[in-house]
């Protein structure tokens, strides 16, 4: 049972290492999907996805440094 639990923890940790980062990424993807599905130019959704992901990374590292400092 411990092994199964360890495998489950490992699998979950691969994608949800930091809950706020995970939620922020999912929010960016949802926003990009909403743009693409709204009938707007899909490339705008793509740009939102790319720029949003870069912004999420910068913010997450900044927050991580602050919380450790």
């Amino acid at each position: 049972m411990t092994l199964i639990k360890d495998v489950a923890v490992e699998l979950a940790g691969m994608f949800v290492g930091d809950a706020r980062l995970t939620l922020a990424i999912l929010a960016v993807i949802a926003a990009a999907a909403a743009i693409c599905l709204s009938g707007a130019e899909p490339l705008i959704g793509g740009a939102a996805l790319l720029l949003g992901s870069l912004a999420v990374l910068l913010d997450s590292v900044r927050r991580g440094a602050r919380s450790q400092g």
Binding site: M14, F15, V16, G17, D18, L21, T22, I25, L26, I29, S53, V56, L57, S60, V61, G64, A65, Q68, G69
Partner: peptide, 23 residues
């Protein structure tokens, strides 16, 4: 793509914090 973004940005965040000496 979604799983790769979650996994990749998670690794990149941790590597950046390690490179900065935070962790």
């Amino acid at each position: 793509g979604v799983l790769l973004l979650l996994f990749g940005l998670g690794w990149l965040r941790k590597a950046a914090l390690r490179a900065a000496g935070v962790i």
